[in-house]
């Protein structure tokens, strides 16, 4: 992304801790450190991919940005204005500009609402359009995402997975948002249908300049769609760079392992694989120092005691590691 593009969203040291309650008195016995000091920005017209293993905090970041829940600490700026402390009514105008598309197209759509009403729900919430104007807009949105007008009166269960995801996208687009938070938007879809939705997201970005925060665990999909990629591990960003840079010069050992673990669909390909031992540690009892030291093949004594800070190693390439690779 060029530096001259407008910064839409900025996170500074965002934290989200969930209390763990135990016993009949529901005493707080500890915290899940789901998001632990995350900072990044999203520019106008760009897609920022957010990847990392299950439970590393990706959705928590997304839900906090949407203000579906309050951050535990840190700051959120929207076009330079701080929004993390705004009240429900103060936040309304921002809610319109930041929309979301979720993983499970079925459970995120109300089964008792007709497709047209689902798509126009945000419109009714945020814009006072006449009924005729509203209908017209829904018709346009249906065409835009490749659904037929005769499907407007159908219920979600009458749509296929890919079509339901299109409904979700049409709904998000209805109020002309600046940013769409996509949380695993194609994970539940078949490969052949996945391509339809990925292309659609790309086309919409070209046409309207909308930005995406694209959360997914499929690295090939993220690579395909993202301009920049942030890699998370146990609540922290461990590396962030432009897509080509990240794939050509991964500098964090976790990124290196993650990239090497993706199976390549070519039977002749001989990959040099780094198989990580063990599992992702629990975000309740996190390892000391660098969270990754329990699985890192390059770990040294220092890594157990000292937390590495995110540093810029070349313009736009950030890494949090004491012994960076490829630098």
């Amino acid at each position: 992304m060029s530096k001259t593009a407008n910064k839409l969203l900025e996170l500074k040291n965002l934290c989200k801790h969930y209390p763990i309650r135990k016993g009949i008195l529901s005493r707080i016995s500890g915290y899940v450190h789901a998001v632990d000091g995350v900072s990044f920005s999203i520019y106008e017209g760009e897609t920022l991919g957010l990847v990392g293993e299950s439970g590393c905090g990706k959705s928590s970041v997304g839900r906090t940005i949407l203000r579906l829940m309050d951050p535990s600490a840190g700051e959120i700026y929207w076009k330079g204005e701080r929004i993390d402390q705004l009240t429900r009514s103060q936040i309304r105008p921002y809610r319109k500009e930041i929309q979301a598309v979720f993983q499970d197209p079925y459970s995120s759509l109300n089964p008792r609402m007709r497709a047209a009403d689902i798509v126009s729900e945000p419109l009714r919430n945020f814009e006072k359009l006449s009924q005729a104007k509203g209908r017209e807009r829904v018709r346009e949105l249906f065409a835009l995402v490749g659904l037929r007008p005769d499907q407007m009166l159908r219920y979600p269960h009458e749509f296929s997975g890919g079509q339901r995801q299109r409904l979700g996208i049409a709904r998000a687009l209805s109020v002309k948002p600046k940013l769409i938070m996509c949380d695993e938007p194609v994970s539940a879809l078949d490969v052949s249908v996945q391509a339809q939705v990925i292309n659609l997201l790309g086309d919409l970005q070209k046409e309207f300049g909308v930005s995406y925060l694209f959360i997914a665990h499929d690295l090939a999909v993220v690579k395909h769609i993202s301009h920049r990629i942030a890699v998370m591990y146990l609540g922290r960003i461990v590396e962030l760079a432009e897509t080509a840079e990240l794939f050509n010069r991964p500098s964090h050992p976790y990124t290196e392992a993650l990239l090497s673990a993706v199976p390549i669909p070519d039977p002749k390909h001989q990959r040099k694989q780094i198989v990580l031992g063990g599992d992702v540690p629990s975000p309740i009892n996190r390892p000391s120092g660098c969270h990754f030291h329990t699985r890192c093949i390059y770990a040294q004594e220092r890594c157990k005691v000292e937390e590495p800070k995110l540093e810029e190693t070349s313009p736009g390439h950030f890494v949090a590691c004491h012994f960076k690779l490829n630098t």
Partner: peptide
């Protein structure tokens, strides 16, 4: 062939448009 073409791949050069299989199962 459609399956192979519609899949984004890590070893793709630049991000090209994916080839879709239209319709559904």
């Amino acid at each position: 062939l459609g399956l192979l073409n519609s899949m984004p791949r890590l070893d793709d050069a630049a991000s090209k448009r994916l080839v879709e299989i239209p319709g559904m199962v």
